[in-house]
Deep mutational scan, measured.
Amino acid sequence: GLTEEQKQEIREAFDLFDTDGSGTIDAKELKVAMRALGFEPKKEEIKKMISEIDKDGSGTIDFEEFLTMMTA
């Protein structure tokens, strides 16, 4: 499992990506986040990433899903 410290770091990354503070990361926010990390993702790639992570089919990534992605 994760230490509380690791969870906190992932939470901070999540909050950075969640620019509108909605508690979820949408495609637009993910794209901005990827760019910040030096990637140039295409729209299809973003969609694919979200569909792989987005277990509940909401079209957005919540913290639990993000946590799973970061620790996979």
Rank of each mutant, 00 (worst) to 15 (best):
1 G>V: 11
39 F>S: 02
58 S>L: 08
33 A>E: 00
33 A>P: 01
4 E>N: 10
49 M>H: 03
13 A>Y: 09
21 G>H: 13
4 E>D: 11
61 I>M: 04
69 M>F: 15
15 D>H: 09
41 P>T: 12
43 K>H: 11
24 T>I: 05
70 M>C: 12
21 G>L: 05
33 A>I: 15
65 E>Y: 10
50 I>G: 03
50 I>A: 04
56 D>N: 12
28 K>L: 08
17 F>P: 01
13 A>F: 14
47 K>H: 10
55 K>P: 06
23 G>H: 04
33 A>G: 04
33 A>C: 10
15 D>I: 11
34 M>F: 11
51 S>D: 12
32 V>D: 14
64 E>R: 07
27 A>P: 06
3 T>M: 04
39 F>I: 07
20 D>A: 03
41 P>K: 11
44 E>H: 10
26 D>M: 09
51 S>L: 07
72 A>W: 15
5 E>G: 07
58 S>Y: 06
20 D>F: 05
56 D>V: 07
28 K>D: 13
12 E>D: 10
25 I>D: 00
9 E>V: 14
30 L>S: 01
23 G>I: 01
1 G>D: 07
48 K>C: 15
53 I>M: 12
54 D>L: 13
2 L>H: 05
45 E>D: 12
20 D>Q: 06
70 M>D: 00
31 K>P: 09
12 E>W: 15
62 D>R: 11
61 I>R: 00
39 F>G: 01
59 G>R: 08
35 R>T: 06
67 L>E: 01
49 M>S: 03
11 R>A: 02
26 D>T: 11
27 A>I: 15
66 F>W: 06
26 D>R: 08
31 K>N: 10
68 T>P: 00
11 R>I: 02
40 E>D: 14
28 K>N: 13
27 A>L: 14
56 D>F: 08
1 G>H: 13
45 E>Q: 09
62 D>C: 09
46 I>N: 01
27 A>Y: 11
56 D>L: 10
65 E>I: 08
62 D>Y: 06
26 D>F: 09
71 T>Y: 08
57 G>Q: 07
72 A>I: 11
68 T>W: 15
53 I>H: 12
28 K>C: 13
33 A>D: 00
52 E>Q: 12
47 K>M: 14
25 I>T: 01
41 P>D: 05
23 G>S: 03
42 K>F: 09
1 G>Y: 10
59 G>L: 07
50 I>P: 01
9 E>G: 12
41 P>A: 13
29 E>V: 11
21 G>C: 11
48 K>L: 07
68 T>N: 11
44 E>M: 09
18 D>R: 07
44 E>W: 10
68 T>G: 08
64 E>P: 04
6 Q>D: 06
18 D>W: 04
12 E>S: 13
72 A>E: 07
20 D>S: 05
56 D>T: 10
29 E>Q: 13
26 D>W: 09
23 G>F: 03
21 G>Q: 06
10 I>C: 11
4 E>G: 05
43 K>G: 14
38 G>Y: 02
23 G>V: 01
36 A>T: 07
29 E>L: 14
66 F>K: 00
46 I>F: 11
62 D>Q: 06
48 K>F: 05
47 K>T: 11
41 P>V: 15
58 S>W: 05
21 G>K: 13
19 T>N: 06
56 D>R: 11
53 I>A: 10
19 T>F: 12
2 L>E: 03
16 L>P: 01
15 D>Y: 10
26 D>N: 09
40 E>N: 15
50 I>D: 02
38 G>C: 12
31 K>V: 15
31 K>T: 14
45 E>R: 07
5 E>M: 11
19 T>S: 10
16 L>M: 11
9 E>I: 13
38 G>W: 02
33 A>W: 12
61 I>A: 01
23 G>L: 02
47 K>N: 10
26 D>P: 10
4 E>Y: 09
56 D>I: 08
35 R>A: 09
27 A>D: 04
38 G>D: 02
32 V>A: 15
61 I>T: 00
22 S>I: 02
28 K>P: 03
50 I>L: 15
31 K>R: 14
56 D>Y: 09
47 K>A: 14
51 S>N: 09
4 E>Q: 11
49 M>W: 09
18 D>Q: 03
53 I>P: 02
20 D>I: 03
45 E>S: 09
22 S>L: 03
18 D>H: 03
29 E>Y: 14
71 T>D: 03
32 V>M: 15
20 D>H: 04
56 D>Q: 07
7 K>I: 13
19 T>P: 05
15 D>M: 14
34 M>T: 01
14 F>H: 00
69 M>V: 06
57 G>R: 06
65 E>L: 12
12 E>Q: 12
68 T>S: 10
16 L>N: 06
17 F>R: 03
8 Q>L: 08
28 K>M: 10
53 I>E: 03
72 A>H: 14
21 G>P: 01
34 M>S: 01
61 I>E: 00
70 M>F: 13
2 L>V: 06
68 T>I: 11
47 K>Q: 14
72 A>C: 15
8 Q>R: 11
61 I>F: 10
11 R>M: 03
44 E>Y: 05
23 G>E: 02
60 T>A: 07
12 E>H: 13
48 K>D: 06
9 E>C: 15
4 E>H: 10
29 E>G: 10
71 T>P: 02
10 I>N: 01
69 M>I: 10
22 S>D: 09
7 K>V: 12
72 A>D: 06
47 K>E: 15
3 T>G: 04
48 K>M: 08
20 D>P: 01
14 F>D: 01
46 I>R: 01
55 K>D: 05
56 D>P: 04
13 A>V: 14
66 F>A: 00
21 G>E: 04
68 T>V: 09
36 A>I: 11
33 A>T: 03
10 I>Q: 02
23 G>Q: 03
43 K>Q: 13
61 I>C: 01
26 D>G: 08
5 E>A: 13
25 I>E: 00
62 D>G: 08
67 L>P: 00
42 K>V: 09
51 S>P: 02
38 G>E: 01
42 K>I: 09
13 A>M: 14
5 E>K: 12
55 K>F: 06
57 G>D: 07
25 I>G: 00
49 M>V: 05
63 F>S: 01
13 A>G: 02
3 T>C: 09
47 K>L: 14
22 S>H: 04
62 D>F: 05
3 T>Q: 03
40 E>T: 14
67 L>K: 02
6 Q>Y: 13
58 S>T: 10
46 I>V: 07
11 R>P: 00
64 E>S: 08
18 D>S: 04
30 L>M: 06
44 E>I: 06
10 I>G: 01
67 L>I: 07
72 A>N: 10
49 M>L: 11
36 A>R: 14
27 A>F: 12
10 I>A: 07
71 T>I: 12
51 S>H: 08
22 S>N: 10
70 M>K: 01
48 K>H: 09
19 T>W: 10
14 F>A: 00
16 L>Q: 07
8 Q>D: 04
69 M>Y: 15
3 T>E: 02
44 E>S: 11
16 L>R: 12
19 T>G: 04
7 K>N: 04
21 G>R: 10
47 K>F: 10
26 D>K: 08
35 R>H: 06
40 E>I: 12
64 E>N: 11
17 F>E: 00
24 T>G: 05
14 F>L: 01
42 K>Y: 08
61 I>P: 00
39 F>D: 01
36 A>S: 09
9 E>Y: 14
20 D>C: 06
72 A>T: 08
18 D>I: 05
37 L>K: 02
11 R>T: 01
62 D>S: 15
31 K>W: 15
39 F>K: 03
44 E>R: 06
55 K>H: 08
8 Q>V: 07
27 A>V: 14
32 V>I: 12
14 F>C: 02
13 A>Q: 08
6 Q>H: 09
16 L>D: 02
18 D>N: 04
28 K>A: 11
